[in-house]
Design a protein around this nucleic acid. Structure first.
Lengths: 211, 211
DNA sequence: GAGAACGCTAAGCGCTTGCTCACCTTCCCT
DNA sequence: AGGGAAGGTGAGCAAGCGCTTAGCGTTCTC
């Protein structure tokens, strides 16, 4: 089911998870969690999707929650990487904001199955795992805020409330995972382009005022 | 816990639910579903919060899913009312869009407990209840799209992709329910004002071009 | 003032859950 | 050829689940 996602951006998801059986279980868990939610998913369902008996799950993972934590950790690492790459990249603030929103949204659309688990099942994590993930999210927030602050300082953006607008931009991108469907009309690229344009309008981007 | 919400906008939530015991159970279910999610909430937990035995729940509701359906129905009715009131109200397209976003966001923030259940537990509904709710959501979508189309026709807005922008506006507002916390710094009014401004920028609103 | 109706509880039924355990392969290493 | 990881299974345990049922006190009706 995830096969259409396999090579998006030349990135093969979950290739870092070994051995093969552990990866198959993890992919099965992503699909099940995304479809029905963490709490509504049974360990028997996950094992069944991976073509194994229920007991096989516990050879590779201590608990069902560890599966969720692994998924969440890998997903948040990827999300943070996307945002920091764009924030630290070349170009003016508007170009970096465009790149950040475009690639972040494209990832949420192309991997909406994974993204749904990553973004909406945070509360199911154990407290210590949750706080680890929250730290990563704060760093994502900081990356976007940095772009906005740079744009305001350079006179490129008109943003009265930088923290509030940062929150809104991230919220807009994240929610793509909730509504995006591969069966819909829009491709991830199209949604990324649309959202990049909308966000540049939100920050009142002016084309290179100092030139 | 919900007491701080009780009289927002002069609207006392759940006053339409009678008798008193049924309302107490429903309010308890809203809190529990919002905190832990539908599937992670037990009927014993709901009854306990309402100060009753587990069996008492089944005098007023046939199943746990009926509770969710009632909550979802009432919440979606309210959301649709807010949006259609703004869409059919007086003023130019920009004023109506401002009113729609402002009041819709304010409701999601002030009643974020309820809104979280309404917006994020849709998948837990039985198929026939789910499709009933989806119909209501399509009407909300139509209300916002109507404002945007009016603004474009009047030359007030610059929106290349009306359906896509409608989706983004609603998505932005809805996601407030996920991140808003009463413990945070912002009041529902402040978030409403911020978001109304951001959305007017998104649609490229010009102040009354025909005057 | 008898009797039905209502709102509620204590107990518990049948089932599913996350997870364990004893055992079985397969395969590599010496 | 022999031995021990590594990776898997079938059966099943204790706990918790949604929901039901028998019965109790109170209130309303005529």
């Amino acid at each position: 089911m995830d096969s259409a996602e396999d090579t998006v951006d030349g990135y093969r998801p979950w290739s870092e998870v070994t051995p093969d059986a552990a990866r198959r279980l993890l992919v099965a868990a992503v699909e099940a969690f995304a479809e029905r939610g963490y709490h509504a998913t049974t360990t028997r369902d996950i094992a069944g999707r991976a073509g194994m008996s229920p007991a096989a799950l516990y050879i590779h993972y201590k608990t069902k929650e560890e599966l969720l934590h692994r998924i969440s950790r890998i997903g948040h690492d990827k999300a943070l990487e996307i945002l920091t790459t764009a924030a630290d990249g070349p170009g003016c603030a508007a170009e970096r904001l465009d790149a950040a929103v475009r690639s972040f949204v494209r990832w949420h659309a192309a991997h909406h199955t994974t993204a749904r688990v990553v973004q909406y099942e945070l509360d199911a994590l154990a407290p210590e795992h949750r706080s680890e993930i929250v730290t990563l999210r704060r760093r994502s927030d900081a990356a976007v805020r940095r772009i906005l602050a740079d744009g305001v300082a350079a006179g490129e953006f008109d943003v009265p409330d930088v923290p509030g607008t940062t929150l809104a931009v991230l919220s807009l991108c994240i929610d793509v995972a909730r509504w995006f469907s591969a069966a819909g009309q829009r491709t991830p690229d199209e949604v990324g382009a649309l959202y990049a344009d909308l966000v540049l309008r939100m920050v009142g981007a002016r084309p290179h005022p100092q030139k």
